[in-house]
């Protein structure tokens, strides 16, 4: 007689269920963000190296392929932002007496901070 039957777990388990697939997408957004940060670090390195190095790197960043990458990275970053803020109430539990502050309020504070920070950064960089 054989013992209990163990069902195999295929390495494609995350393709079999919509929630698992979205989870995997969420985790992989970090790859796009990290790749972007490496490109940003190179931009800073070239800026330090001098005018010619900086301007040629800006031309490289302006190529259609690089802009396409950044559009995809922006979509990934936005997905990260939304999933991160929506999960924050799971970690941060604030109680007022017996009542737990509702999750939408905690997430809402995050979104408000996000709008303020984004506007501030954009203003500092673009004010000219």
């Amino acid at each position: 007689m054989t013992g209990p039957y163990r069902r195999p777990v295929p390495s494609t388990w995350w393709l079999h269920n919509r929630a698992y697939f979205l989870f995997m997408l969420r985790e992989l957004t970090s790859v796009f963000i990290a790749a972007y940060l490496i490109l940003l670090l190179i931009l800073l390195y070239r800026l330090n190296a001098g005018r010619g190095a900086y301007e040629s790197y800006l031309r490289f960043l302006g190529a259609p392929g690089m802009v396409t990458f950044h559009v995809i990275a922006l979509a990934a970053a936005l997905f990260h932002t939304v999933t991160w803020f929506n999960l924050t109430p799971k970690v941060l539990v604030v109680r007022v007496g017996a009542r737990r502050v509702p999750a939408p309020i905690i997430a809402g504070v995050n979104y408000a901070a996000w709008i303020v920070f984004s506007a501030l950064v954009a203003w500092i960089v673009l004010r000219g």
Binding site: A19, Y20, F23, E27, L87, V93
Partner: peptide
């Protein structure tokens, strides 16, 4: 735990184990 979050979706008693783990 990598916070897939499906434990909380499956829970019939609304225990929210995913939240418990993150806390």
């Amino acid at each position: 735990c990598t916070l897939v979050g499906e434990c909380t979706v499956a829970c019939p008693e609304h225990v929210d184990p995913a939240g418990a783990i993150q806390r």
